[in-house]
């Protein structure tokens, strides 16, 4: 045993070191390979993914009205904007915006604004869906948690939130129906 820890005649790595490294490496690889199924099992399961899109009917929403639908466990704001609201959103120069984005880039049809109703600051649901709600200084939404103001395009205008309200992927399946996700 005494000789196995010493350098070989040609001055190479001692045999015991080599064996230790190979054993530890294979054991480490094995642990990593086994860890993957465990970690992956915490990702959304297939039944969760199967429910990851939501259909919404827009026909009954009159101009100026807003509805909230659930998508992936989060509220999605659907607002039927009035011409004045569209006008207000489009009149703002991009240089005034914290997260510059044109209103045109945020809608498919100008009268329908569809955004995820989660404040980009720390995840509260902003107010502004009900007619009685405060809508903030820019007529969009107001987040009461930390005072973020969003405009009629759902863009951040004032307060700590860094980004505009997220526009989810959606498509019009007919004139009055959309599928989110």
């Amino acid at each position: 045993m005494a000789d196995s820890g010493e350098a070989t005649a040609d001055g190479g790595t001692p045999r015991r070191d080599f064996l230790n490294l190979v054993t530890a490496s294979f054991a480490g690889l094995g642990v990593v390979a086994v860890a993957w199924p465990f970690i992956n099992s915490m990702q959304p399961a297939r039944d969760v993914l199967a429910l990851a899109s939501t259909d919404a009917e827009l026909g009954s929403i009159v101009a100026g009205q807003a509805v909230t639908v659930m998508w992936r466990g989060k509220p999605v704001f659907i607002r039927h904007r009035t011409p004045q609201e569209i006008e207000a959103a489009r009149a703002v120069p991009l240089s005034e915006l914290k997260d510059p984005q044109t209103d045109q880039a945020r809608v498919t049809k100008p009268e329908w604004l569809i955004v995820v109703g989660v404040c980009t600051h720390l995840g509260c649901v902003p107010l502004g869906q009900k007619p009685t709600d405060p809508r903030g200084e820019y007529g969009g939404w107001f987040c009461p948690c930390h005072g973020s103001h969003y405009d009629t395009s759902g863009r951040i205008r004032k307060g700590p939130a860094p980004l505009n309200l997220t526009v989810p992927g959606y498509a019009f399946t007919s004139d009055t129906k959309i599928r989110i996700g």
């Binding site: 199924p37 465990f38 992956n40 099992s41 915490m42 990702q43 399961a45 297939r46 039944d47 969760v48």
Partner: peptide, 29 residues
């Protein structure tokens, strides 16, 4: 890790185990 997906209720326990087998990533394993 199984307990993260299991529901200890008589009306849901069996189905939650079947969900582990069919839907949860590597749940069968």
């Amino acid at each position: 890790f199984l307990a993260m997906h299991y529901t200890p209720h008589t009306s849901m326990a069996f189905d939650s185990v079947e969900r582990i087998m069919r839907d949860v990533n590597f749940g069968w394993l």
